[in-house]
Design a binder for these strands. Structure first.
Length: 615
DNA sequence: TTAGGGTTAG
């Protein structure tokens, strides 16, 4: 991966790509190129709709309307929306169902799905008859609440009221299946629509299924669906292309994404800021700053201007590369362009500082975030908590955990897992267990990761009876766990010099229907070597090949070090030859070992030249 | 004059 060296100033970023003597210098004159782009939030849309709604009341006096407007502008939450709803219910004659639908729509956009359901019930009690729009909104809310059964049962209401579900209704249901990871059922309903006479899928229906396929990692099927559209089923729009381009970028298939991008533009579909954001994110993840710069320049030349997401990608990438100062320069640019840094911007910056162990700086960013009235969420706290845990400042981590609760922010799975891991790494197993009980008591069910963290903590602290008990608890819960869990315990047993138990567990894997991966073999081989069982280690090396698991660099380095440490130099040398023939290299610690042996005159100096890595 | 699909931080 190419690593960029960047010198930043507030007006430009000088991006250099060090590659031997050949260094290109590029200037990113972002500041001069990017005009501001202010996005309206859904809350603003919400206000505007209500202002329009009340403007339409011709019977009201100007004075009362001004009072209403003044009051409505203050609507920022569900409570205020509920007040408006109740007020509407008391008006006579009752406003039309259309106006109620508008409220339901806005609440659904704010993700208050269960509120929508209860308001709909209230409407029914008040004698307001739902229309096709109302019922579709309700289907959508049930889908988002993962209550597909109720969503499907609304179809009965359609027929009862003499309505026919339409393309929107079916598309909503397809989306519901996808939200529940039931892509096959989504595809079946889609097919039924294709075969139907009057409910053929439209571009939104296709887009919904494309999203589902991409979410499943099935880019090929998504592209096939796109081809079907291009063949005439329905003209694909930018949303369809963006979904697939984004999915390809997330799978690091950036070249494929760029090919699709070219295909799209050649067909006359113009890219937008989201297309560029996905591509820039894709190339940034690969460390390709040069391409990111080219894309930024290209989008601006097309009058497509970077938005807060574009900047967030840049801030995050700089932070992940440890270049927090450069990230700060990007934030400066955002502010100069009147683009307000978001929760994500500040969270990335905090993460950047935490990765460098600079907790005080991270906390300062957090203070800025609070002082600017920027929303703080569980993720913001998780970053700080993780930073404290990594520095073994568990008391600070616990304080932050309490502070977030006081602010009314509900700790999520990541919060608990981070803290449990922190306690385990400090050997404070009881504290970790207490947190596990606390999360369960609060209705947060531990996931495989939680158990793996605890298992790792128990085995590193040599509490094997408890570790085995936990493993059995996991097996009993039928959690969707895999080889990672067993590798943790096998490694723990090996480190505790309980190689026989580790080997028993390793051998029991096939009975459990779980296949060991390369890491399992490496752990076991290392365990054998450390226990002086070099023959067993070599046997396992051969066995893994027979079972179709190719050894990697780590396998060879582990076993070679094992032979050297067990004074079996000739077998070590033979394996070095085998490793080099297979194109693997000696790692730093193997080289160090050989150099030490050379200094003691215990190996042939020719060996050093032999192990030199061609890379 | 209202319903359904796409982007960013673990």
């Amino acid at each position: 991966m190419m690593r960029a060296t960047i010198a930043a100033s507030s007006s430009s970023l000088k991006v250099g790509y060090g590659s031997g003597s050949c260094t290109t210098r590029l200037r990113l004159k972002l500041k001069d190129m990017l005009p501001c782009l202010v996005q309206s939030s859904s809350v603003v849309v919400f206000f505007n709709n209500y202002l329009a709604l009340f403007h339409s009341r011709t019977s009201e006096s100007t004075e009362s309307r001004n009072t209403q407007q003044h009051r409505l502008v203050k609507i920022t939450n569900v409570e205020d929306a509920l007040d408006v709803f109740d007020e509407m219910l008391q008006r006579r004659p009752l406003p039309s169902v259309v106006h109620f639908n508008q409220i339901l729509t806005q609440l659904a956009k704010l993700k208050h799905y269960s509120t929508v359901i209860s308001l709909n019930n209230k409407m029914g009690v008040s004698g307001i008859c739902p229309d096709v729009y109302t019922l579709s909104i309700i289907v959508n809310c049930f889908c988002h609440l993962h209550q597909m059964g109720f969503g499907l049962s609304v179809l009965g209401n359609f027929f009862k009221l003499g309505f026919e579900p339409n393309i929107t209704t079916y598309t909503t249901l397809i989306n519901g299946f996808i939200l529940q990871n039931r892509v096959a059922e989504a595809a079946t309903l889609f097919k039924k629509m294709l075969d139907s006479g009057n409910c053929k899928p439209n571009v939104v229906t296709f887009g919904t299924l494309v999203k589902g396929l991409c979410a499943k990692g099935n880019n090929t099927a998504a592209i096939q669906l796109l081809k079907k559209m291009e063949e005439g089923a329905c003209k694909p729009n930018i949303v369809i292309y963006n979904t697939i381009i984004d999915s390809l970028c997330k799978d690091t298939l950036v070249a494929d994404a760029q090919n699709l991008f070219s295909e799209m533009t050649s067909k006359g579909v113009a890219p937008n800021v989201r297309t560029y954001n996905s591509l820039i994110h894709g190339v940034c993840k690969l460390g390709n700053w040069k391409e990111a710069t080219r894309l930024l320049n290209e989008m601006v030349s097309k009058h497509i201007f970077p938005n807060v997401c574009t900047f967030n990608v840049l801030v995050d990438t700089f932070c992940k590369e440890g270049m927090v100062q450069e990230a700060r320069s990007v934030v400066e640019m955002m502010i100069q362009r009147d683009i307000e840094p978001s929760t994500i911007t500040y969270s990335s910056l905090m993460d950047g500082y935490c990765l460098r162990g600079e907790m005080d700086e991270a906390k300062k960013v957090f203070e800025v975030m609070l002082s600017k009235g920027c929303m703080v969420d569980a993720h913001s706290y998780n970053i700080l908590i993780n930073g404290c845990c990594k520095l073994k400042r568990m008391d600070d981590a616990r304080m932050l955990f309490l502070e977030m609760s006081h602010r009314g922010i509900v700790p999520n799975m990541v919060t608990y897992n981070t803290l449990i891991d922190g306690f385990c790494k400090m050997g404070r197993i009881q504290d970790a267990h207490n947190l596990l009980s606390q999360m369960q008591a609060l209705g947060q069910l531990p996931n495989v990761r939680t158990y793996n963290i605890l298992l790792d903590g128990l085995s590193k602290n040599q509490q094997f009876p408890k570790a085995v008990e936990l493993l059995e608890e996991m097996e009993g819960k039928k959690l969707d766990f895999d080889i990672v869990t067993y590798n943790i315990l096998i490694q723990g047993l090996c480190r505790a010099e309980k190689v026989e138990y580790a080997w028993d567990l390793f051998q029991s894997l096939s009975l459990k229907g779980i296949q060991p991966d390369v890491r399992s073999y490496n752990i076991m081989i290392s365990g054998f070597c450390n226990g002086g069982l070099t023959c067993e280690a070599e046997n396992l090396l051969r066995e893994m090949e027979e079972r179709g698991r190719s050894p990697d660099d780590c396998t060879y380095n582990t076993i070679i070090r094992g032979f050297f440490n067990n004074n079996d130099t000739s077998r070590a040398v033979r394996l070095i030859q085998e490793m080099v023939e297979r194109g693997f290299c000696a790692d730093a610690s193997t080289v160090e070992l050989i150099v030490n042996l050379l200094s003691k005159d215990e190996v042939n100096p020719a060996l050093l030249a032999f192990i030199k890595c061609p890379r």
